[in-house]
Amino acid sequence: MQKESKAPLGADLVIPALALGFAIYFFFSTADLIWEAKANGVIIGTALVILIAFQVGRIALRVMKGEGDLGFAPLWQPREVVWKRVGLVVTTAAFIAAMPWLGLTLALWLGMLAQLWLIGVRRWKLLFWIPTVTAAAVYLLFIAVLDAGFPHGPIEMLLTR
């Protein structure tokens, strides 16, 4: 007999959990403030907590009825792109962290090269030209034309010398 698949309802609790955590933090961090300063947040936060309670109750009922389980499958499906997705987040964080040292242009070039390779581009011409054209366009618009205050690195220093 084929096993009946249950809805993975645990994933539906992640956003409520984040919201609840933030609401609790809001209540504690504003406890000492004057009522007018926190009134809006307290009213919204209380409504949010009530809504979350309803959602938790709804999910608990469905789990008890056997319609679902507390799985998180929707968050990492399809399986084959999970590591690509994680890699994109990690390389973006690395790009942000490296920008003060490498400067916008070089950090962007390296970040883009890493992300393209990570999600499956293997043709070396594309791996070279997409980051180069993007980094050059970003440099021209944000640094050369608009002087938007990005961190300068070796490439910016070389070009402004």
């Binding site: 300063a37 926190k38 809006n40 947040g41 409504a47 809504l51 979350i52």
Partner: peptide
């Protein structure tokens, strides 16, 4: 839940009367 979560995030920062920082 999504809308109220957004509204609560919108409360972050100093308030409009006493400039008290919140969350």
């Amino acid at each position: 839940i999504a809308g109220f979560f957004g509204l609560l995030l919108g409360v972050v920062g100093t308030d409009h009367v006493y400039s008290e920082p919140r969350a």
